[in-house]
Design a protein around this nucleic acid. Structure first.
Lengths: 130, 130
DNA sequence: CTCCGTGCAAATACTTTGCAAAGCG
DNA sequence: CGCTTTGCAAAGTATTTGCACGGAG
């Protein structure tokens, strides 16, 4: 059976997990969420599909935090706050506004590079950890 | 023999390497720079000392780029441009000015967190790769 | 003598990959 | 049938750690 997106059932399930959370999960967290419902799911499949989503532009990597890559299916421009103690990642909706395309041009001229995108991360302690 | 900083000779040598480059090196690159002069240096020692420098506030991690952690002994506030093809990292001296402490306060109020620091990364193609 | 720093190798942690089998159109 | 997706296990890569040794004070 095919889903609405022409994804396999497992690919769809993996996408649904990352699309319906704002926890910026690791591959393993996604795996653990699905394992009870899909007992024959393998971790390798989760990794492979997360790569597929990155290539398709359906998800992106926030980077490696505390040794594990964190994924985000929220493709709107936004920044992140990263807790240095519990490694929770919190969206900062307006964060993109801090830097605009004029600044791209400025940096491009200064450094001789071509900028595609940018990311802003704030680091500190979250409300639960402070 | 102790050096000016009360570092061991190897610790001093490792610090000198990261302090005298703007390439934002990996542990392995530091190791390869020193190996010819210090044939009995081990990679574990490089990793251990880089950790020591982070704890001492003499160096920081720029993050894991293409699978390897990148270090920086330039502790002044600055941003980075990261080439998506060759993974070269270029300093953007004025980058810190894009975000000021008033924005910290804004985000802190909005999200209920305590911000210690922030980082801005630009991604694209460097002058050699475009 | 004691402590810190170190080499070496083993262990760890995360991620990727090869391959044969299963799934779907 | 032909192409894609998957499970499983092995391999790969980067980093950390245990332990015993060695040098400095």
């Amino acid at each position: 059976m095919q889903s609405k997106r022409n994804f396999s059932a497992k690919r769809e399930a993996i996408y649904d997990v990352i699309a319906s959370t704002d926890t910026h999960p690791t591959a393993e967290w996604v795996y653990e969420q699905l394992k009870p419902k899909l007992p024959d799911l393998s971790l390798g499949t989760v990794y492979r599909n997360l790569s597929v989503f990155k290539e398709m532009g359906l998800a992106k990597s926030i980077g490696v935090i505390n040794g594990q890559e964190r994924f985000d299916a929220n493709m709107t421009q936004h920044s992140h706050f990263i807790c240095q103690k519990c490694f929770r990642i919190i969206d900062i909706p307006g964060g993109n506004n801090f830097i605009d395309k004029n600044m791209y041009a400025l940096v491009e001229r200064e450094c001789g590079v071509k900028i595609e995108t940018h990311g802003i991360n704030f680091y500190g302690l979250c409300d639960k950890c402070r």
